[in-house]
Nucleic acid binder design. Sequence first.
DNA 1: TGTATACTAGTTGCATGCAAGATGTCGACA
DNA 2: TGTCGACATCTTGCATGCAACTAGTATACA
Lengths: 258, 258
Amino acid sequence: MQDVDKVTTQTGNSLQQHAYEFIQRQIADGSLAAGTLISEQTLARELGISRTPVREAIGRLQTEGLLESLPKRGTLVRRLDRNDLIELYEMREAMESFAASRAAGRIEAAEVEHLHSICDDMSRMVDELRDSDNTVLDSEQMRRHLALDMALHMTIIRAAGNSRIFKVVSDSRLLTRVLWAPRQEHDLTVLTEAHDHHTRIVGHIKAHEAEAAGKLMAEHIRASLQRALDHADRDRQRRTMSADYLPPLNSHGDTTVD
Amino acid sequence: MQDVDKVTTQTGNSLQQHAYEFIQRQIADGSLAAGTLISEQTLARELGISRTPVREAIGRLQTEGLLESLPKRGTLVRRLDRNDLIELYEMREAMESFAASRAAGRIEAAEVEHLHSICDDMSRMVDELRDSDNTVLDSEQMRRHLALDMALHMTIIRAAGNSRIFKVVSDSRLLTRVLWAPRQEHDLTVLTEAHDHHTRIVGHIKAHEAEAAGKLMAEHIRASLQRALDHADRDRQRRTMSADYLPPLNSHGDTTVD
DNA sequence: TGTATACTAGTTGCATGCAAGATGTCGACA
DNA sequence: TGTCGACATCTTGCATGCAACTAGTATACA
């Protein structure tokens, strides 16, 4: 009677968890574009389940900031505006610079080794791009680079030993990754600068130079934000110019970008 | 530019909101002690509503960290241990020192005025205690002092203009306020030190000295954490000693056991 | 006496029903 | 042509029913 073997993964096979992951995937891969209204019923039908678990999954995604509930009309996929992006990066700046300082005081040799190996991988990506005919990373390379960047930052935060900071930063990154429409391109300049920052940060952490590590991490994240904003502005300008060919202002409030 | 404090207010008169506030109050005033199991059905009956809104309120409280769900057995009121407290204060240190720096660069005159008036109120509380016969604040004074402290910190964060940081810090403070069992006492030393920190922080912010404001805020919060930990340790030792079936000498070293 | 079994009461997870509110459409009418 | 109003159809918010699971207890049995 003591069958303990299937105790694991009850969140894994719960319908709510399934719905949660389903919706998040749909948003991430663009099936659910920002601004679209979603309906509990529709999602439930798509998943072949009832509204209840879908409703609870929507609730979670709402508190995490991916969805937004309109009073009595429905819930829609949030759209990050410029200010949201600034806020998210500022949070990372606060959290991660603190974490870098803290990590500098308590990191262990094995973790430093891990950081070095990640830096080496990123260095190889720089060479790879320089030796290729392209000026920017292709999408597969972007995926790899993002994964490396994520691994490096998260390793540092984990070394700081604060699980809540880890979660907040994870959520922030998820939000920008999933909801931030203008996907950037990385050229050689961006890549080398990021790599330079990373190696110097890791160096400071290894040398137990807490303050320098924190300061540089803050600077690094501010630089990322600046790039993201520049890219977004260029993207918006491009789209605004191409929109000149389209129907002339039948709806009012043309220049306001929600 | 959205209003920062409007983030939390939504669905004011919904049953779910009602249940949410009810449960939170019960935890805050001790009716639901840490570690007790709660039942959707019971709460629903107490509130005279059905399980559904109660269940959703519990879900929210769960993601906010006040409740914890055991797989299929029920959900219980979380208990914060020493490490939780450290993590929560570290998050505040990271967030609020950043916010103080940021506020120093952009605060407006009216907000500075508000900070000054809060400082004055706290100063009056210092005098009040000094002139009284008591060595510590009574519970009503503690409530007032906590409200003033909260107002000051939150005003600074609001001046920093980042609604997400505001929310994270609010949640952190809610958790410690509601879930941290050993309630502290504030004597004259504590009060004057806090007041000293506050006035100096406000001074730096007013003078647009970003770095000094941030550093001092970090120090201020570290001091608060230290006081909370000391108090908790004393509290635990007291309780251990009062348990006369255990020799107090043995329990000195093992701080790892909860 | 000690152990396995069955039973009871409690819990959550999910499905479903129903009412109230919001939105869009279509037709009547000025 | 333009405006108002009823209606059909969405949506959510909540109540309720039901099955699966767990813990605890009483009971049958060796």
